[in-house]
């Protein structure tokens, strides 16, 4: 009986140990969990975070959430169980991702948000975010000037659950709505996805064939919208505005296909997140909860000063 007890205790002990995150001093690794790698902008963000983590002496592994909060949840569990010491995180959903970050916090794994915000100020150690609102204010000012304060336009929104979607939309409207002769005739989401934006724009053009402009919540959607406009023979008549500073839009601005974009600096955000995580693991605890990173307006007038993703 005693042997049975001992065996049971041993098995219980082993199984409990197996469920604990593996934390050995020699293992230094950071998990980089990204909303989607189906967009070059996020690939760049992920690769820069991984590169900085490696430079700081950590093993780095990138996880693709495929814009799916459930998959993101699996990645968090995997990262916690596998003994990653910190998570550099680009959330899929401002509300839906909070529980995942909480899970990591409960397991003692610090999380640093990059580019996208979560709707909690207490679970992530710090959130390093593009100043999407102010960037869109700058794009909107250019939009109003280009349209000479009048005309009709459509807005293509990003993921409805992402705060950046609304920050960009609100920033844009905080300017454009002051001009009553500028009329928004449709507003629809295309989930930050180029193909969806192409479909949305094709559909919108059926109902609104005479628009003057389209404002898109990111560059992938701007390229999708441009593709639809080109297919309908309207590319020269409709001005396209994007947000991100992606490579194809930088080229499109040079070629006069896209009017403007808001240049984000993913490298700054990714590197800062990795540095913060390293500092946290070394004992620092005083981090600002929200750190906005400035977004710069890029137009044909200053395009030579910029390269994709703010690299120049």
């Amino acid at each position: 009986m005693k042997h049975l007890h001992f065996a049971l205790m041993l098995m219980l002990g082993l199984s409990t140990t197996a469920c604990q995150p593996k934390k050995t001093p020699q293992e230094k690794k950071m998990a980089i969990i990204i909303s989607t790698l189906n967009n070059p902008w996020f690939v760049f963000l992920a690769e820069n975070a991984a590169a900085k983590a490696k430079e700081l002496g950590y093993e780095a592994k990138i996880f693709d959430s495929q814009n799916n909060t459930a998959l993101e949840s699996d990645h968090f569990e995997n990262a916690i169980v596998s003994g990653f010491q910190a998570i550099l995180f680009n959330p899929t959903d401002a509300d839906g991702s909070v529980a995942n970050v909480q899970k990591a916090k409960d397991a003692g794994v610090p999380v640093f948000c990059m580019d996208r915000e979560i709707n909690s100020n207490t679970v992530a150690v710090s959130q390093i975010l593009s100043d999407s609102y102010s960037g869109s204010v700058a794009v909107a000012k250019h939009f109003v000037q280009q349209l000479n304060k009048k005309g009709t336009y459509v807005e293509i929104l990003g993921l409805v659950g992402d705060n950046n979607t609304w920050a960009r939309s609100k920033g844009f409207h905080s300017v454009v709505d002051n001009y009553p002769a500028l009329k928004m005739v449709a507003q629809q989401s295309a989930d930050f996805d180029r193909n969806k934006a192409l479909e949305v724009m094709e559909s919108l053009l059926q109902a609104q064939p005479n628009i003057d402009a389209v404002f898109c919540g990111n560059d992938a959607m701007a390229m999708g919208a441009y593709q639809a406009l080109a297919g309908a023979g309207k590319a020269d008549k409709v001005k396209v505005f994007g947000f991100d500073g992606a490579a194809d839009v930088i080229t499109a601005i040079k070629e006069g296909k896209v009017s403007a974009t808001g240049m984000q600096f993913p490298q700054v955000m990714a590197q800062m997140a990795a540095v913060f995580a390293d500092e946290y693991l070394r004992g620092k605890r005083d981090f600002a909860q929200k750190i906005p990173v400035a977004v710069e307006l890029v137009t044909l007038n200053n395009i030579d000063d910029y390269a994709a993703f703010g690299k120049k």
Partner: peptide
């Protein structure tokens, strides 16, 4: 001065 980090 600036609240945001960056060039602006």
């Amino acid at each position: 001065h600036a609240v945001s980090i960056g060039n602006l």
